[in-house]
Design a protein around this nucleic acid. Structure first.
Length: 757
RNA sequence: GGGCGGUUAGCUCAGUGGGAGAGCGCUUCGUUGACACCGAAGAGGUCACUGGUUCAAUCCCAGUAUCGCCCACCA
């Protein structure tokens, strides 16, 4: 298609530099004068909006929905840059490209933020009551969410705003209720009393992966239970739990204790008599080879208790305060620990010295509080069958994980996963769609259905945030309804996200996507065809960014000072698949200079009357320099395509950077000065053509990564509507298997491959 | 306790069985009409260590050291 033609039937207003003004590009690129204007133009012209009815091959990426809490950080900026680059390239290649935006309600995180806000007013959520509190969160979401959307615009995200979704909107709530009921009816969701991870501060259950483990200094205390030859020494790091012991366990083959198995010994302090049981789980090599058993407060002990029919004694309440009658009642677990040890010592029950002991302690990933294993009645997803299917889809190549070594982590998790605790004792989230009858009946209620009857009440808990995010690739496209969007854009093409949420999000989308969309058959039930994982953003020395370290980068700050393009280029330039990205102010400065270099190269071309030729100059008219730069262009174009297909953004940026700076600017442009100085000679005309041709292509190749400058310059150079819909200079076919077979055979527009070789 | 990855120029990182690289930083020079957010020239590395395979190893293999990440219900 000709440059400058109206490509979409929705002509852009062209209040940019045109005609005589072309030569008036200022000598320095000022992003602040360009970016907001261009984004508004793009958005209002509808270029971001996909059309499900279009005959073009589909290409779809759903955004990893940012939490409504807070604002976008530099990690989001990386993610968005990479996604935007992929989407923009596909759009130029003639695909029906959709980047679907939205946000996540982020259950615990958001509730915590609003509760903190309330605390500043001296209130708790209970003062407001459930309904008022949830109302307040919605109110808060309205403000905070708007901020994030503004940041996405600043970054240049070419998202389809008409399709924006939220994990708590009406449609997604229906999706949640629908899949819950299906899973429940299929026996894949159940309710059970189990030891779960409990946060005594957030006062809710957590899933296994919401617990962060870190090695901490603890004390291993050896305690003598029983008397004389009926005594046995156990070791523990959590002495206070002995108040809830209901047995001591030893290995069945351990000769040291065989005489005690089956007998009862006295538990110190309480004086209760507890049995000694033999259980193969006990490691005779560790410590004394005898373990205290606290079924209500330890997952292992719970299992031992179950095997031996032991009672469970709960001695801590939901806040981690001792409830066992006696001198320790009312003490916090961390106060009770030394108090219990002291009492035992007084009775001569502490045998060996208390030993320092480093062990892994679990913390609530939202607030850092030490997690307490707690026996409670919760809802679970039975993950076995779902995870099997999710693993197979990657094993047999229906979903490809980039880089491939990340697949090993995926398998580790998916192949050995505990059931997923999905109920949370919160108010902000999807209420569990289950009702309980007056006689203890349990009924799962689908969307739009009425409660089963009088006297029934709904479960007060809400679902884990990740339950609704797991539905994101199809719920956002309209599921459970059979919509055009769902038919056209599912499975989505690529999922681009950080490796840190491989388990939280990616694996669960796999499980739920394959389950919910199973009727499409194994090939097309997958939520995405490719998973492209990137790393975390780190500072110049590879250190993790953190507020306490003071090395964080605010993307808006960089955008203000260096421009969105420079920010994006810096991030993309560091992004090798799966590797962390080190950035610093020196890097953005370089990227900003690069944008300026492009600006001035184009400015030079305009000053010298370069233009994009309608037809290529005859080969015999080309100088050696012309032929050289054109062959280099062809090679770089091919490289760029290959690198895009492999998500090698760092190498892509490197290749284009060097071509543009070293070869086009430092060499070709300098060599061109001689023929250009010869006025209207044939050589000058050819050089102007070649220069225009090369810059046209170069700007297009760079546009996916640095959309703003390239748009501004390309419009000035060609007089075209928008580079966004100009034909991609490289290959048009998708090569990474991210598109459906239907899509990969399609081609659009002219085969705009390099014309010179 | 398992699994994975790194160790190359001052810093951050590419890289390949035979010639050691980039960006930034550094040194010297340059007020040539695209750009000083620039240009030209240049300094700087026993490619962690040890052994092996090979005509040849920074690159392949084994081991060591060290850093980092992920997973894990051993008190």
């Amino acid at each position: 298609m000709p440059a400058g033609g109206s490509l979409c039937g929705c002509p852009l207003d062209s209040a940019v530099v045109t005609g005589e003004d072309q030569a008036q590009l200022p000598p320095q690129y000022a992003p602040g004068n360009v970016e907001p204007r261009l984004y508004d133009r793009w958005e209002s012209s509808g270029l971001f909006t996909a059309d499900a009815k279009a005959s073009k091959p589909p290409f779809c990426i759903v955004i990893p929905p940012p939490n409504v809490t807070g604002s976008l950080h530099i990690g989001h900026a990386l993610d968005h840059t990479l996604i935007d680059a992929l989407v923009r390239r596909r759009r130029m290649q003639g695909y029906n490209a959709l980047w679907l935006p939205g946000m996540d309600h982020a259950g615990i995180a958001t509730q915590n933020v609003v509760e903190r806000e309330l605390a500043n007013e001296g209130l708790s959520r209970h003062d407001l009551g459930r309904e008022k509190f949830v109302e307040r969160v919605w109110q808060w979401k309205a403000e905070s969410g708007g901020k994030i959307l503004g940041q996405m615009r600043r970054l240049g995200d070419s998202v389809d705003w008409s399709r924006e979704r939220f994990t708590m909107d009406e449609g997604l709530s229906r999706a949640v209720q629908t899949i819950f009921k299906r899973l429940f009816d299929d026996g894949l969701i159940y309710r059970a009393e189990r030891i779960i991870n409990w946060c005594p501060r957030c006062l809710t259950a957590l899933s296994d992966i919401e617990v962060d483990h870190s090695d901490e200094d603890g004390e291993l205390v050896s305690i003598r239970y029983g008397e004389a030859e009926d005594s046995i020494v156990v070791a523990t790091t959590r002495a206070e739990t002995m108040l809830g012991d209901t047995a001591v366990a030893v290995h069945p083959d351990d000769p040291r204790y065989s005489h005690l198995v089956g007998r009862e010994i006295e538990l110190p302090l309480s004086g209760r008599r507890i049995p000694v049981v033999a259980d193969p789980h006990v490691d005779p090599q560790f410590g004394t080879g005898a373990v205290k058993v606290t079924p209500a407060h330890d997952p292992d002990d719970f299992e031992i208790g179950r095997r031996h029919g032991l009672p469970s004694r709960t001695i801590l309440n939901e806040r981690g305060v001792i409830t066992a009658k006696g001198p320790f009642e009312g003490l916090d677990r961390f106060e009770a620990r030394p108090a219990v040890v002291a009492a035992l010592r007084e009775q001569g029950r502490i045998v060996a010295e208390v030993r320092p002991y480093v062990h892994a302690v679990g913390h609530c990933m939202r607030c850092g509080t030490v997690v307490e294993p707690r026996l409670s009645l919760q809802w679970f997803v039975k993950v076995g069958p779902l995870a099997k299917v999710a693993g197979d889809a990657v094993r047999d190549g229906r979903v490809r994980i980039h880089p491939t070594d990340m697949a090993a982590r995926y398998f580790d998790w998916v192949d050995d996963m505990h059931d997923w605790c999905i109920s949370r004792q919160l108010w902000w989230g999807h209420r569990i769609p289950v009702w309980y009858g007056p006689d203890g009946q349990v009924s799962s209620v689908g969307p739009g259905e009425d409660p089963p009857g009088e006297g029934w009440y709904q479960d007060p808990d809400v679902l884990d945030t990740w339950f609704s995010s797991a539905l994101w690739p199809f719920s956002t496209l309209g599921w459970p309804d059979d919509t055009d969007d769902l038919r056209v854009f599912y499975p989505t093409s690529v999922l681009v996200t950080g490796y840190d949420i491989l388990f939280f999000w990616v694996a669960r989308m796999m499980m739920f996507g394959l389950y919910a969309m199973a009727d499409r058959g194994p090939i097309d039930a997958v939520p995405f065809r490719v998973v492209a994982l990137h790393g975390l953003v780190r500072d110049a020395h590879g250190k993790k960014m953190s507020k306490s370290r003071g090395n964080t980068v605010d993307p808006l700050d960089w955008i203000d000072r260096f421009g969105a393009d420079a920010t994006r280029f810096t991030l993309a330039r560091g992004a090798s698949p799966g590797s962390d990205v080190a950035i610093s102010e020196e890097w953005v400065t370089g990227a900003r200079n690069f944008c300026n270099k492009l600006w001035n190269a184009t400015r030079f071309a305009l000053l010298n009357g370069a233009r994009v030729p309608a037809a290529r100059p005859p080969r015999e008219a080309l100088s050696v320099a012309d032929r050289w730069i054109l062959s280099r262009l062809a090679a770089v174009t091919a490289d760029a395509d290959a690198l895009f297909e492999q998500f090698e953004f760092a190498k892509l940026c490197e290749a284009l950077y060097h071509f543009a700076w070293d070869e086009v600017c430092d060499w070709y442009l300098e060599l061109a000065k001689l023929p250009l100085s010869s006025g209207d000679s044939a050589a000058a005309r050819t050089t102007r053509d070649v220069l225009g041709y090369v810059l046209d292509r170069l700007l297009k190749l760079l546009h996916p990564v640095i959309p703003f400058v390239t748009e501004e310059l390309w419009v000035a150079l060609t007089g075209g509507d928008s580079i966004m819909i100009a034909p991609w200079p490289g290959s048009l076919a998708g090569g990474s298997g991210e598109s459906s077979p239907r899509a990969s055979t399609a081609s659009t527009g002219d085969a705009a491959g390099p014309a010179y070789h």
